[in-house]
């Protein structure tokens, strides 16, 4: 009987300790990043795997790709289609279906020319599946400034959070 009472008093004390823990966290600063106002730091995005992109060979929109089809064959999800060009090794078409991609890096690691890599586009938005079927050659030209970039730069007041 006495033991039960002592046990229960100890139990009540453990509840007070618990309350003090949550009370302390109530008063301490928040840990979350409020997305549109804050963004995560660039060092986290460095290793982020976004959709594939072609590595530029020059600033004229040329790629290093030699149309060897290694990436397409290595892909477990069949998401890459490379169409060989008429002349030379440069591809005519490099189609990439992001909806099927599992970001496993099989293509990147099997590429003998080092022509593809993962982009760090974390804020990518698509409204339909069609928009996720990417044409990587057009994307490369766009990044070289040969085609107008559709996405505006993020607002200035956005500050990075480490």
């Amino acid at each position: 009987m006495i033991k039960a009472v002592v046990d229960n008093l100890k139990g009540l004390w453990s509840l007070v300790v618990g309350l003090s823990v949550t009370g302390r966290f109530f008063l301490s600063p928040q840990k979350t990043v409020h997305f549109p106002r804050d963004v995560v730091g660039p060092e986290i995005l460095e290793s982020f795997r976004g959709p594939l992109e072609l590595v530029p060979a020059d600033d004229q929109g040329g790629s290093k790709c030699i149309s060897c089809q290694m990436c397409a064959r290595a892909c477990p999800g069949d998401c890459i289609t490379v169409v060989k060009g008429d002349a030379g090794k440069a591809p005519k078409e490099y189609k990439y279906d992001f909806t099927l991609c599992c970001l496993c890096a099989a293509c990147v690691e099997s590429c003998p020319a080092g022509a593809i890599r993962f982009s760090h586009r974390v804020y990518m938005v698509a409204r339909s599946r069609e928009e996720l079927r990417l044409d990587l050659l057009a994307d490369l030209r766009e990044r070289c400034g040969l085609e107008p970039a559709p996405a505006p730069a993020p607002a200035d007041k956005t500050k990075a959070v480490a």
Binding site: T22, F25, F26, L27, S28, P29, Q30, K31, T32, H34
Partner: peptide
């Protein structure tokens, strides 16, 4: 809000 602050997030904002 209280639940959010305890869980170190902002709650509705």
């Amino acid at each position: 809000k209280a639940c959010g602050f305890i869980q170190r997030r902002p709650g509705p904002y």
